[in-house]
């Protein structure tokens, strides 16, 4: 019963939200739903795309028992570096690839540091958060990087069939890949094993450090991709881009049933988690709820989700043979 609840609670919450918001629009504001229009739904998709992309990588890292607080800073740093390259003549596609490479390098460094220094990932990446942000600000002197070609806007602005934004397609593609990796491949299997019992995984002959570094590098690369999309959206390099994203990204994983202690989490859950936050924000705006109140609500949702997770975990632990 509660296993069932655990699996479907996030989904049910999302459905409930999507039902309540139009009703509230109708009964409180007295007009037909703006929420359920193609335009608005596409807007939600676009707004949540960046967070969802990063959350896919974060799902891997968190399932494997780690965490990365530096992802927001990686968005900023990769955006600045990629934009500088484009501003100095690198083709747009090359610039975006540079964003990805910078992100992957930062993630690789995080993973390597966690393994070499044997310090908790929370601390290592808290440091990384400062280092990458500082680095980004330093190389552009704190100013947005301008002078990018207009075609740099392609990645964020391009739409298909008139309303399907390109970032949404990217999200779908990445979600499918990560879902496949987590559920169907060795890389994903080891992810769950390491998060469930790192020592046991090591004794089973798994190269735990190598895999761990790989998960962080993938998350880094996806954060770099997020940086590329942000760069494209503003057609500038933003040293402060991605600030605070880490919290939304981690929240998406956790609301979607991912466990802070590792071993649990799914792509579908994380997507739902990310959508719940996106819909909450969007619905809040439509219903003209103060953004301050919205913050309070999102905070409460996170606490509830983690409480639920902990509660579940304790039940499992107390019943071990």
């Amino acid at each position: 019963m509660s296993d069932w609840l655990k699996r479907f609670l996030p989904f049910l919450s999302l459905i409930a939200l999507c039902a309540i918001i139009p009703l509230a629009e109708y009964f409180i504001l007295g007009h037909d739903s703006k929420f359920l229009t193609a335009g608005n739904l596409a807007a939600i998709a676009r707004q949540t795309a960046v967070i969802t992309i990063m959350a896919m990588g974060m799902t891997m890292v968190m399932v494997s028992g780690g965490i990365d607080l530096s992802v927001g800073s990686i968005v900023g740093l990769s955006s600045v570096v990629g934009a500088m390259a484009m501003a100095s003549g690198t083709p747009v596609l090359g610039g975006f690839l540079i964003c990805l490479a910078v992100g992957a390098a930062c993630g690789w460094l995080n993973g390597a540091a966690v393994n070499l220094l044997k310090i908790p990932a929370f601390i290592v990446t808290l440091g990384g958060m400062g280092i990458y942000r500082g680095l980004g600000l330093y190389i552009c002197d704190g100013n947005a990087v301008v002078g990018l070609p207009q075609s740099a806007g392609y990645l964020a602005e391009k739409t298909f069939l008139g309303f399907i934004p390109l970032p949404l397609l990217i999200v779908i593609a990445i979600a499918l890949i990560v879902h496949f990796v987590l559920s169907q491949t060795q890389l994903g299997r080891y992810c769950y094993a390491m998060g469930s019992n790192l020592e046991a995984a090591r004794y089973a002959g798994i190269r735990v450090s190598r895999y761990q570094i790989m998960y962080y590098a993938i998350l880094g690369a996806l954060s770099g991709l997020a940086g590329a999309i942000e760069t494209s959206r503003t057609v500038t390099g933003q040293p402060n881009g991605g600030e605070g994203y880490e919290l939304n990204v981690i929240a998406a994983v956790v609301i979607g049933g991912g466990s802070l202690s590792g071993g649990q989490g799914t792509v579908v859950g994380t997507i739902i988690g990310s959508l719940i936050m996106g819909v909450l924000a969007n619905g809040g705006n439509l219903l003209q709820i103060s953004p301050f109140i919205q913050k309070i609500v999102i905070g409460a949702v996170i606490v509830l989700a983690v409480t639920f997770d902990e509660f579940q975990r304790r039940r499992v632990e107390s019943t071990e043979a």
């Binding site: 299997r189 094993a193 469930s196 019992n197 020592e199 995984a201 004794y203 089973a204 499992v316």
Partner: peptide, 22 residues
Amino acid sequence: RKRTGLCLNLPLSTNVTLANVG
């Protein structure tokens, strides 16, 4: 078996195949 052996919250099948996923 609890500390260095099993991944307790994962299925029996995952635990049996863990050393030879290849």
